[in-house]
Design a protein around this nucleic acid. Structure first.
Lengths: 246, 246
DNA sequence: CGTTAACTTGAATTTTGTCAATGCCTGTGG
DNA sequence: CCACAGGCATTGACAAAATTCAAGTTAACG
């Protein structure tokens, strides 16, 4: 994968601008802190599939979409990058996908050679990079399990929970999720059509699992049902115990 | 991912038993060459999801399936491991999936701590490990694109090509593919039902893309059509040129 | 051989995709 | 500030794809 979640998650964005110097040596994010911020307008492309993969980025604000165009012309969205995440980590000479700003974004850039030099010099950073890659691999696998083996409704539920966690840090009753991406983006990510995404969201709404404040603001209501639908948990222990007692 | 393809692919299996000593220092596979071979009967479990992840394995003969049981009891196959591949590479303390022998297998084992010590000591091995992880990540992504965005027929075609390449090293007209796994295994891997897998294979057969020698031996016939169906290539250049001229 | 499990095929149902129409935000210009 | 245009989201009717349920048929193994 080309994106690595920060261990800290959304907390990273709330972190004060001035951080202990030590961080620069002990976290991958620290490597970017001395770099200048660059801005990209919404809709702008940060890099194209096929461009030489010269740089590695940290997204400091905004949301990106990563996609590839399939041989038949269909656009497949590989994932979304949220503030705090690192992007472009690859050992290929070219980028294998296109990164596009969904919202206005700001990023910090580090040349790939510099990044790898810094990482391989540091005994603290090397294992971190490996651990991150493994974490990311696990995440991709989990995602694939949900998306591949479950229905449209389950995929949408899983997606909403995932966005909630990445943007607000939690997915509890009352959490308002800002969906910056369009329905088309969601569909191209989940391997569904726009219409099916709409209908699934509509169904979640009519069943009271979520509430909509316009098409791009979703409030989570029945988070247990959402999690079950998304295939994240078995039926609750207490519930099955009750069922057994009855 | 828990499996890393050997760079050499199937050639690794054909490699003479005696190899230059140098290899032991320059490839990840080399690390396993001094280890004793262990055998597992078909149907045996090598390790279970949740076991402490103490060892890393190289599969020297046979085929494994990797799977997890989803909360609703469904079995999701994450992938298959073929001879030559390395298995169990994770930075988690426990295995996150179950590895089961499909055929009789032989493996070599290395403790995780030993493996990581050897790798981190070697300037040659460290970048290899990173590169492998990235390659594997790309492979998982590609797979996801095909499986998520394409039909049952396309998934099956893609699967057959992939098995052909991993076992015979090529996917050309006349290649005979040995499918050691059951239809249920294939279905649980592709996110389809057994019946759909059967029907897709039947369709490929009736359209002349493949020939069956019993249910577990498949001969590739129209490899270009298979690749197009699998979404591996655009329509052939010459063809589109012709179409334009007409 | 005979038994059992695996594979294949068929028909009905459900889910998803396709095509088409309508409604609703949003931003721009009057 | 309002009107309007254009894009996006939603909904409906129908078609296609995949799943489910239910037989058969073939292959594997003792």
């Amino acid at each position: 994968m080309y994106a690595l979640n920060t261990a800290a998650g959304p907390a990273a964005r709330l972190r004060p601008a001035v951080v202990p110097i030590m961080l620069q040596d002990t976290t991958l994010e620290g490597l970017f802190e001395s770099q200048a911020a660059e801005s990209f307008a919404a809709g702008t492309t940060v890099f194209w599939e096929g461009d030489p993969a010269d740089d590695i980025f940290q997204l400091t604000q905004g949301i990106l979409r990563l996609y590839r165009i399939l041989p038949d012309g269909q656009r497949a969205i590989i994932g979304f990058i949220f503030a705090g995440e690192i992007l472009g980590l690859s050992f290929k000479s070219d980028y294998l996908l296109t990164a596009e700003a969904i919202t206005p974004v700001t990023m910090r850039r580090l040349s790939r050679t510099r990044f790898h030099a810094l990482v391989s010099e540091s005994d603290a950073l090397r294992p971190q990079l490996l651990a991150r890659l493994c974490d990311e691999m696990c995440a991709v696998q989990d995602q694939m399990l949900v998306f591949l083996h479950r229905t449209a409704d389950a995929r949408v539920a899983s997606f909403l929970l995932s966005v909630a966690r990445k943007t607000t840090g939690a997915a509890t009753k009352g959490t308002e999720v800002e969906l910056a991406m369009s329905r088309t983006d969601i569909a191209d990510y989940l391997g569904l059509t726009i219409e099916t995404v709409c209908r699934s969201i509509g169904k979640l709404k009519s069943e009271g699992l979520i509430v909509l404040n316009g098409p791009h603001k979703i409030v989570l209501q029945k988070t247990r049902s959402l999690r079950e639908l998304a295939g994240e948990a078995k039926a609750d222990e207490a519930f099955t115990a009750t069922a057994r007692a009855a």
